[in-house]
Amino acid sequence: MDKKNALRAGALAAGTTLMMLLMSSPALALTRDDGDDPGTGLSVVETLGLYVLAPLALFAVIAGLVLVLDRSHPDHRVSAPGAKGKTKTKAKVAAKA
């Protein structure tokens, strides 16, 4: 019974993919529409800079700002279980009170 369902699902997926490929005709991309004004293409360096380096730089700037402007109290930070960090003792808590 499982093989029958798997074959049915595979046939459905293959049929759907085939229909999507047939419906999207790449030949229509060659005809220009009214008002279509494509610019010059990007070089490889420009493409890598725009789609790889710019997002990485933006991520680095945002992460750096978050780290530099972090104002959270060290006692409220979450650490891994079993990690040796500063912990408040009962004497220090009682002394503050």
Rank of each mutant, 00 (worst) to 15 (best):
T47G: 07
D36G: 05
T40I: 06
Y51T: 06
G41E: 14
L50Q: 12
T47C: 15
A14R: 05
A27P: 00
D2Y: 01
K3Y: 08
T47F: 15
L42G: 05
M23Q: 05
R71V: 03
L22H: 03
S72K: 06
A57I: 13
L18F: 13
L69S: 04
I62F: 12
L30V: 11
A54P: 01
L65Y: 09
G15V: 00
D75W: 15
A54G: 06
T17L: 14
L53I: 10
D2R: 09
A29M: 15
T16N: 07
A9C: 08
D34E: 11
D33R: 03
L21W: 05
P38Y: 01
T40H: 00
T17Y: 09
N5H: 10
G15I: 03
L22W: 02
H76F: 11
S72H: 07
R71W: 09
R8A: 14
T16I: 14
T16Y: 04
L48Q: 03
G10N: 11
P55T: 05
D75E: 15
L30N: 14
K3H: 14
G64A: 10
R8Q: 12
Y51R: 13
L48M: 13
A27Q: 13
G10R: 07
S72C: 01
M20Y: 08
V44Y: 13
L7I: 10
A9S: 01
V66Y: 05
A6I: 14
L58G: 10
T40R: 09
V45K: 11
P38H: 02
L48G: 05
A29E: 08
A63E: 08
K4M: 13
G41M: 06
A9Y: 00
D33W: 08
L18K: 05
V61M: 04
R32L: 01
G49P: 06
D37E: 09
G39W: 01
